[in-house]
Simulated assay, not measured.
Amino acid sequence: MRIILVRHGESLGNVDELAYCRIPDHALPLTQQGEQQAADTAPAIRALLAPGPIATYVSPYLRTRQTLELLNVRDLTERLVAEPRLREQDWGNLQDPVEQEVQKRLRHEFGHFFYRLPHGESGADVDDRVASFLAELELRMLQEPRHPHTVLVVSHGLAMRLLCRRLFSWSIELFESLSNPGHCEYRVLERDGDGDWTIDRPFGQWRQSPDGSTQKTSVR
């Protein structure tokens, strides 16, 4: 079994934070740069996925769906699911730019995992839903012999890091020390016949984990 995780391309919200005050998060489109990033990444993703078939699970946000289209893997896709559990962390109501800055500061001070945004989610909430997604994916593969064993997941930076945290049992302290992957960066997760999972490369870190733990790149 292989899971290829891809982060969306650059979106309007990445270059204009005030865009969140006038456009819902789920409706923020890719920028021209984001479209180009996805198109540039497409050959590498196709090389990983060909000849197919694959199952594709995509966050239903506009920027992730646009990224998927530009990755040009429709012809390889046997099953396509818009999966809400892979969406971005819910930030609640962001119409007030001053409140945006307050919440970002508090989230940084109290930790990205446990701090719950008003009317929104904590990182722990996202962790729960990606764990649910992983469990259901494994169950589908056991119960549906025709389900492709290569899976493409187009999602968001936080969801990617938390999905790997769950799969590799990384500590919360380590998770909070990891940097988001860049736009259209990807990671390749593989499980061998013995049930061991591996990841092709670690995430960047902006600090050493306070508990001294490091990113395991394989786990049984």
Results as ranks from 00 to 15, higher is better:
Pro53Phe: 08
Pro97Lys: 09
Arg65Met: 08
Val126Gly: 02
Leu86Glu: 03
Ala159Ser: 14
Thr150Gly: 01
Asp125Ser: 02
Arg129Glu: 01
Val151Gly: 07
Thr56Pro: 00
Phe110Tyr: 14
Gly120Asp: 02
Leu142Ser: 12
Val81Ala: 01
Pro84Ile: 14
Asp96Asn: 13
Arg87Thr: 07
Glu99Arg: 14
Leu162Ala: 04
Val153Gly: 06
Arg140Phe: 12
Arg146Met: 05
His119Leu: 09
Pro51Arg: 02
Val126Ile: 04
Gly111Ala: 08
Thr64Pro: 08
Leu71Glu: 02
Glu121Asn: 09
Leu71Tyr: 06
His108Pro: 03
Glu101Gly: 07
Arg140Gln: 09
Glu83Ser: 07
Gln95Thr: 14
Pro60Trp: 10
Thr64Phe: 06
Gly120Trp: 04
Arg65Lys: 10
Val151Lys: 01
His149Tyr: 04
Met160His: 11
Glu83Tyr: 03
Glu88Trp: 06
Leu134Ala: 11
Val98Lys: 11
Tyr61Trp: 10
Arg129Pro: 02
Arg129Gly: 01
His156Pro: 03
Arg74Thr: 12
Met160Trp: 05
Arg129Tyr: 03
Asp125Tyr: 04
Arg65Trp: 02
Thr77Tyr: 10
Gly157Pro: 02
Ala159Cys: 08
Glu109Gly: 06
Phe168Asn: 06
Arg166His: 13
Tyr115Ala: 08
Leu94Val: 14
Met160Ser: 08
Phe114Val: 04
Asp127Gly: 01
Leu162Phe: 09
Phe113Arg: 06
Asp90Ile: 03
Glu69Asn: 09
Gln95Gly: 13
Arg146Leu: 03
Asp96His: 06
Ala55Ser: 13
Gly157Trp: 05
His156Glu: 03
Glu138Asp: 12
Leu152Thr: 12
Glu101Asn: 11
Ala82Leu: 15
Glu78Lys: 15
Val151Ala: 01
Ser155Asp: 11
Glu83Asp: 09
His156Val: 02
Val151Ile: 13
Arg161His: 03
Ala55Cys: 11
Val154Asn: 12
Leu152Tyr: 07
Ile54Ala: 00
Asp90Pro: 00
Val98Ala: 15
Leu142Asp: 12
Ala135Thr: 10
Leu94Tyr: 05
Ser132Trp: 06
Arg161Ala: 05
Arg79Pro: 09
Pro97Trp: 05
Asp128Trp: 05
Ser122Pro: 14
Ala135Gln: 13
Pro118Val: 00
Thr64His: 05
Gln89Asn: 13
